[in-house]
Design a binder for these strands. Structure first.
Lengths: 193, 193
DNA sequence: GAAAGTACTTGATGCAGATCAAGCACTTTC
DNA sequence: GAAAGTGCTTGATCTGCATCAAGTACTTTC
């Protein structure tokens, strides 16, 4: 149940057997079923969640009732409403399982303790955050400079796994285009070859 | 020359006199003039830069030659091409001073040493990165769900200082709209009152 | 296996914001 | 202080993608 977690952390910082065993204890394992929510907008986000198996998405619903996918999380990645998790304020995002999934939840206090008690964990999280920023900046630039088709092709190139596993609606929402447009783009792209 | 830096760090972690003095030594102070570049796309980004005074922007130029402002940095904030700084690969962004400015540069090695030698700095940077992520996610959602006018009003609300100090072109670029559209929006908004 | 729900496709139409173009105001230069 | 450069405004036109609408295919339910 913790293989992915340990290999993710182990790839960035050195971990001995003792550290590994200690580490595990801070996390709460949980199985969630497809369509199940682990966070509802308006609640306070209690955990930062590591995905061992399956796939989740975070999304907001705007004033017109349109959904916007903020993030997909597959095996080996983290998901949360960080603003809410860190501040204790109401979450803006919902988090929903897109497949039956297994996750490891880390609470606020547990995260603090973990960083104090297991050497290197502060560093691990810093590196994680850094990589996250790089990815987010790229996404911002993509939204600013690319057409619908270009965004689609770029995502295809960067995250083909997501393209295969997520529904077209959700991919469209992530790219910030309508499902209709995505459908037309797909047709066009497949005709070109 | 280091007041802003020390107060920024001091607000997130405890710093005694000794730590403060030690800290300063890792940074290279530099004065830059308006329009001067401190990073050119294609070079490797050597520093993460703290702004003591003035204002800078990072931006990319796309295939059609259009500029896109990724970030504004005013007093008390950091700016860099993080992907390049961390990986040693070619930078995608340019960084340019929008006013005469004073900055403190932190090199890769210096950053590492700083985190090892001054307690709490690892934590400081983690917190910095976290807040950055929250802001970036908000920006992504804004791009996805808001109209040009709404994005303008939101930025006005969140960062009125930037609206006053940056040129209209740069603000338009940051909002990912044309200067013409921004001009029209401004007129509209001022008429409404 | 009929019925209802859900996901994707395809077509017709509309619109927010881009592009193109020209003019105005202010600032820098020598 | 004339000339050139730079930034903002305003108008006319164009366009990529959204919206609305209807149809098809596949999946779930009992």
């Amino acid at each position: 149940m913790h293989e992915r977690l340990l290999s993710s952390i182990g790839s960035k910082i050195a971990l001995n057997e003792t550290a590994m065993n200690k580490l595990k204890q801070f996390f709460i394992p949980k199985k969630i079923r497809k369509r199940q929510y682990i966070l509802n907008a308006g609640d306070v986000c209690q955990y930062i969640t590591f995905v061992e198996k399956g796939m989740l998405r975070s999304f907001t619903v705007d004033d017109e009732g349109h959904e916007h996918v903020v993030q997909f999380a597959v095996e080996g990645s983290w998901i949360s409403d960080m603003a809410s998790f860190l501040s204790g304020k109401e979450a803006l995002y919902n988090i929903e399982a897109l497949e039956d999934s297994e996750v490891l939840n880390l609470g606020t206090q547990a995260m603090d303790d973990l960083m104090h008690q297991v050497p290197g964990m502060e560093r691990y999280f810093r590196l994680l955050m850094q990589n996250n920023i790089i990815a987010l900046q790229r996404r911002v630039v993509a939204y600013m400079s690319l057409s619908a088709e270009e965004k689609y092709l770029k995502l295809m190139e960067v995250a083909p796994d997501i393209m295969n596993r997520a529904s077209q609606q959700h991919i469209a929402s992530y790219l910030s285009i309508t499902p209709e447009t995505l459908s037309r783009i797909r047709k066009q792209v497949s005709n070109k070859k």
